[in-house]
Structures are given as C-alpha cells and as structure tokens.
Design a protein around this nucleic acid. Sequence first.
RNA 1: GCCCGGAUGGUGAAAUCGGCAGACACAGCGGACUUAAAAUCCGCAGACCUUAACCGGUCGUGGGGGUUCAAGUCCCCCUCCGGGCACCA
Length: 863
Amino acid sequence: MPELAKNESERPERYNPAQIEPKWQALWDADAALYAAEGHDSAKKKFYCLEMLPYPSGKLHMGHVRNYSIGDALARFMWMRGYNVLHPMGWDAFGLPAENAALKNNTPPKEWTLANIAAMREQMRRMGFSYDWATEVTTCLPEYYRWNQWFFLKMYERGLAFRKKSKVNWCPECQTVLANEQVIDGRCWRHEDTIVEQRDLTQWFFRITEYADELLQCLDTMDGWPEKVRTMQRNWIGRSEGTLVDFKVSESASPQVSESGEQQKITVFTTRVDTIFGATSVQLAPEHAVARALAACDLELAAEIEEMIEEQKAAREAGDVGAIEKHGVDTGRFAVNPYSGEQVPIWIANYILADYGTGAIMSVPAHDERDFEFAQKYSIPVKRVIVPANAADELPELPYTAEEGAVLAESGQWTGKSCVEAQREMAAFAKANGFGAATVTYRLKDWGVSRQRYWGTPIPMVYCENGHAAMHGSPAVEAGGVVPLPVTLLPVVLPEQIEITQQGGSPLGRVAEFVNTTCPACGGPARRETDTMDTFVDSSWYFYRYADAKDAAAPFATDKVNYWFPIDQYIGGVEHAILHLIYSRFWTKVMRDLGMIANSEPAARLFTQGMVIKDGAKMSKSKGNVVSPDDMIARYGADATRMYALFAAPPDRDLDWQEDGVAGISRFLGRVHRLATKYSEAASQQVSAPASQRSATEEKLLRALHQTIAKVTEDFSGRWHFNTSIAAVMILVNEIAGAEAAMDAGEVSPAAMGEIFRGLTLLLAPFAPFLAQELWAELGGEGAVFRAAWPEADAELARENEIEIPVQANGKLVVVVKLPAGSDEAAVKAAAMADAKVQARIEGKTVVKTIVVQGKLVNLVVK
RNA sequence: GCCCGGAUGGUGAAAUCGGCAGACACAGCGGACUUAAAAUCCGCAGACCUUAACCGGUCGUGGGGGUUCAAGUCCCCCUCCGGGCACCA
C-alpha cells in the first residue's frame, strides 16, 4: 500500500473533522482568555448570552446540543460584532438521580455527580461550545449552596420563608414532597406513571404569592419573551378579581350551628357579584368549616360529606378532576343573601374546591353554565337577573352569561345598571355595610421547598429542644423552638459519608452527627432540620453567580451583577416555562427588595427552542430513538452536527433528526474545505486591485458574498432563522463552485479571492467554528476567527444590475422579463408589452388595467 | 370548555410588507469519472392532462366561503395535530 499512500498525499487533503477539530480544541483550551469576558469596566457594550444549565446526567443529549448550538452561534456572532460577551455554563447538580445511582451502583452521589460533570464538560469542549470555564458554577458544592442557605435566612428574616402544616403533594416514587409546579395532571413530573398522593406535613415554603401581582404585571411589558410563555405564566398565576360576600347562616332555620353560640357566616367568592340577586343557593366544599359544623350534629350528612371528600381526593389523584359527576346534598339549612335579604338553601357539593377562593360559592343558575346544570339536576329555582342592555332584544336563553352589553334586572337599587358598573358599586356597598369587599384571588400557591431527600441543600434551621427561641440580633424567631442559624455558621455542609437506602423519610435524619447540634440561641441541645431544599432553588439564581463566580464573601458583588444584568438573551426549552422561569423571576424580585440588584426581571429576552424528535416522537430511551451526539461527532464531526441542528428547522420549531441530513451538511463542509484549500494560496496574498478592473466573475461573486453577508447578519438580529442563513451560505458556495473554471482561468484576482474566501469563512464561524478556524489560518488570518470582525455588507457591491420581472395576466404568470436594475415604470411596462408571449396572451382581448409594482411584477387585467 | 401554536412536494423546509409557491437541503432518478464500487462532479425532479418528442394546458399551500388586479399570507366558518389552563366560582 505504500504507493496508494503516496497518491493520497499528493492529492489535496480532504476535509477531515476528526483531525481538524481536536487540534483547534486543544489550542483553544490552552488559551483561557479566549472565551473570557472582560470586566465590568470594559469600554465595549456588554452581551450576556445564557443557555439553561443542564442536569449532569452524564451524557449530553440532542436537546442540549441544539440548545447550546443556538447560544454558541449567537455568542460567537456577538464577539465578532465587538461586544463584551459573557457566555457561561454550569451544572444543576443536586437532585434525585444521584441518589438513585448511588443505590444502584453503590457510588456516593457526589462522586457520581462530579464524574458526570467531567464527562459532560468534555463533550461540550469537543462540540466547540465557547464557554468560559473560569466562571463555571456547580450547585452541589458548598461554595455555591451556602448562598442558598444565606438567601433562605434572608427570606426567613423577611417572613418570605415560613413553615406551615398543609396538604402537600407526595410522590411515592421519589419519596418526597413536590411543589405544585412539579405535579402534572396529578402525576409526578419525573414519574409520569406515578400518582401523586396528598399528605399532611409541616413544610417550608417561600411566599411567592407575595409577588403574584408583580409577577403578573411585569409580563405585560416583557416583549422579549415569547407570548406563549407569558400566557402560560398568566394562567399559572391565575389572578381573578371578584368580591367576597358574607351570607349569614339563617337563625330561624338554624338556631345554633356553632358550639360557641356565635352566629356563623359563609363567605363566598364570586367574580359576578352583579348576578347575586339571582342566587338561589349557596354551595359549600365538603371540607368547609360550616359544612363540618353542620355535619357534627347530623350523622347522615357527615357520611355524605366524607364520601365527597374521598371522591375529590380520588379524582385529584387520577388527574381527572373535571370528570367527576357533579352532585350535592341539601343541608336543609338556609343562608341570607345580604343584598336582597332572601333566604337561600345551603348545599354541600362535590365540585366545590376547598382550596380555591373561600371554598364556598353562591349559585346563580340563570347566569352560570355549571350552576344551571346543577339547578336542573336538583330542580333548584332559576331566577333571571341579567338582561340585554338593548331592551328591544329578545330575552336570551338561559344560562345567559354575557357581561358586556348586559344590564341588571330585578336587582333592587342596581336594576338597569350595566354589569361592570354594578360589580364595582355592589362591592363598595358590601364594604360600606360590613358584609364583604372587593378582592383578588390567585391560583398560584406558595412554593413548597422542603424535600425529604439527601442530595440537596440543607435547610439552615435548627429546632431547639428547650423550645428556646431568641437569637443574636435576629427578630425573626418563631415559637416552638425553630431557630435560624446565624450566617456565620454557614455553610451547613451536607455530610458526604451517608448510607443511601430505600427507606422513607429524610435520609439526613439518620445521620446523628448531622442532626444533633446545639441551639445557636441558648447553647442547649437542638436538632437540625433534615429536609433539603428543592433543586429549583439552586437554579433560581445561578445565573447571577456567573457574574462573580468565585466570590467567597457574598453570593455576588452588586456592581458586577448590575453591569451584566439583565441577561440579554436566555435560551432554553419551553418545558421550563412555568417552573424555573417563574421561580427565578420571583427570586430576582426578592433580591431586588433585599437591595442586592437593580433589575426586576432576570432576562430581557427569552428564546424557547423546539424539541428534537426522531421518527415522529421525542427522543427517549423507552422509544429507542435516541441519537447520541458522540456518535454524530465520530461520524461527521462536531461542526456538521451542530450546523445540522441549526439547519434542519427554525430554532423555535420541533426538529426532526435525520442522519442523512447531517451527512449532507458534512458534504457541504467538505465542499467548502476543498474550494477554500484549493484557492487559499491566491486568496491569502495581501494585494489589492482597482475596482474598475473587476471581471464579470469577480462582480458576480462579490455580489453573492455581500448579499449573503446582509442576509446572515439580518437573521442574527431578527428572526434567528438560522436554517435560512445557512441556506444562503450554501447558495454562496454553489456560486463559488460554479465559478471554478473562471477562477482557474485567472479571471478572479487574488484580492477578490481573498475577500470572497475570508468573507465566507467569517460567515461560517458562528455555525462551524472548527472548520472556520482551520480555513482562517489557511487564508492567513490572525488569531481566533470568532474574534475577527464580522464582515460588513456593502450595499453597492450587493446590488443586482439586472432585475427579473414576472408578467402576469389576471394574476397568472405569463413570462419573466429581464431589465436593467432601476428601470422605471414605463420601461417595465413597455418591456412587458413587447414580449411575444404576452402579445399572444392578450391578442384579441382588451387590457382593462395594468398594475406595475415597482421592482416586483406586472399584472395585466384582460377581458 | 377557554387560551396559545401548527397543517405547504416522497422528507426537513423556504416565501419577514398581499406580488413568480416549493429557495436550500435530504431521499430518488439520469449522466460523467471508475475495471467496478465508494467518493466527487453535472443534470432532472409538485400532481395531473396532452404530445413520438418538443410545445402547451389544468389543478395545487388541511377543507369551505369571502375581500383583492393579485391570497400560503387578510376576513368569516369548519376539520385535524401539538402545547398550556381547567368543576377556578
């Protein structure tokens, strides 16, 4: 084979990513300054480009590759545009998988996690992602999580972290509590087959509801976020304006329902207080206090209530709350409508939720669909009190739920008023008379952060066994011996030597050295909190840490964060639209109120990329359709893999992974490599030729180049449709390849050659950084290609000198005529009419109208 | 039920403002090169009708209506797919 080898070496070297990519990776790795941001005193404009940090599962998947290829292209582009770019990466490193792996492999969670991080960091380097590893953040290390504890204490001081006993979501698979946001259709977000149970537990919460209104209001002005995400967050917050109205439990029918003898009242929440004269019953949730009070002296009723509670529980666990059949029971008692003085029956119904509003409603069958249905079923009276504003209109069928264009009827002093006006006045009336008020309710609940797991941030609280509760300088001390640790005792370090078992309960509770401590207030014996924090705490503020990752004295320095924030572009999957993205908005507002930062929102712009699917389904192990990035790199190289991820679909849409497509990109890169290598000698000469002597080929190629520059530049600043940017670069390469004979014949000067190939290389740099770097060096470029200046589109060079004008007859294409660019309307019209095909088409007919759209087309209306 | 997306060739897609539908690719077919294959290069390619072939014609962006000289794009109605919220009072 020596002969063959000789032949091979004489041929121009073929595109070989396996050789090019590791070479540049090593050179880039050796230069720590390459991807580093300048300090906050930089004269350049800053650009904070952020991709969502991954959970270190051990392997990158294609979703990651897509996410980071988008961010990396943007970061490199911004560098080339002269910005001071911060492009960091980190690890969302706490969480249950590490404990499961520990069980399975008998490896300590920390060891397992850190090994995964090392492997994934290596994969990212191999992909050529431009992260500044000097600012890397790993959430499971005490250098990071101590600040979770610090924030927890700050929030505790402000009453934003608190403990309460409540119904919580319990995943039997995770053996821990879940936040509401982590329960999807009654199932665990990590175990879609596992039904989440309800348990009564005392847990720590963050008072996110305190910020509900601000979280909602800011959404209106967050133009840089997708409307979809904003809508999802609005729905999740679920703000509802309405009125609270007290109905007194009627004395005549129920002399005494309260043991204290005090008269009971039922407070209902309604968004339609204007319909209250039509209320014909009051409906209570089975768990409502009054329902329980009534049941206390009525065994039959008590049994029915119990049944309803079970039914609601079962439905919630089945994730199918809407499906239970509505039914209720008449208690035989009455309540008094404070507006009309009417007595209405009190019912208990299975569809009333105890945890929304007040757990009680007024039922207005005439003007609410659900109430109407219920009233039909039990023959409860229906009373119309809302009619169309236009009295001439026929009375609409019931239930009539309109609010706009409707007025009140048979509603005392409010009769004839518009619904909207009546709502306002009636709420004010309730307040003035002490039986109610306008109010706002939210769907959003406080964020439960306690987890009965080991691998998370320890909560920095102790329970004093003396019940002691005073603490140095801290006013925030609860009764019952809950004592916050002083910040000087942070971090509370997670013990590393621990046996992971499948037993329930918090694993930390079994580590005596951890649990047993002394009360920082009285010095007496105390027990540590053994729950850990939800991992969403870690990811709620990690991107602030990047700005000052090594700070040992504070979570970060305010001036650094104020320079970098808000994040200019945040990129990640839409699956975090609610969870992470609402928690981190909350956290930002808390930090602002703590005086730590100036911004109220973390990210000016958010981009949610689509999923990567294969054969019509999301890639997953169970479907067996997972494509490994490592395989793709081995076969086609990192450049082809990441470029395909950008080419196959616009980034916001789902992407169907087709390996043939990656091969196609690889072929394209090979073509670029062949052409650039072939002409690199001529192109790297530093000569210039006068423009007046340009050959037709030069003009054509320069025109193509500058049109492509304009197109790609525009895509970066606008829609981010990199699929069309890459298509444009392909067209440019096709033009160059088509001019190969002319170039070989010497029709393109070295100066033009240099401009064309250097331009092409710079255009490729954000998408295929390795090849671009290789060619940049080959073409005589200095240093890192993505630190070279992005080319400017020259409009003069880009301009076409000939335009093609389609000529239509009645909107149908007849012919395309060619004209010199800039031809006026008359010339275009004349050229169109002079065409033989056009003549043939209009022969014997009358042209009734001629439409000429300058530079676009001609349409002849003929009859 | 309510609120967002989406539906374009065999496939991924393009058409940013109402102005040539299908750019750019993939797969396919044909050719060149090769002993052969791979690789590479060149060409063809929405469907249907017509033709020996050219030429030519009709239809065509989920379905139906409309506005317009002109509609994938705007308006009305409907179907299907994906996502979010949901006995939320």
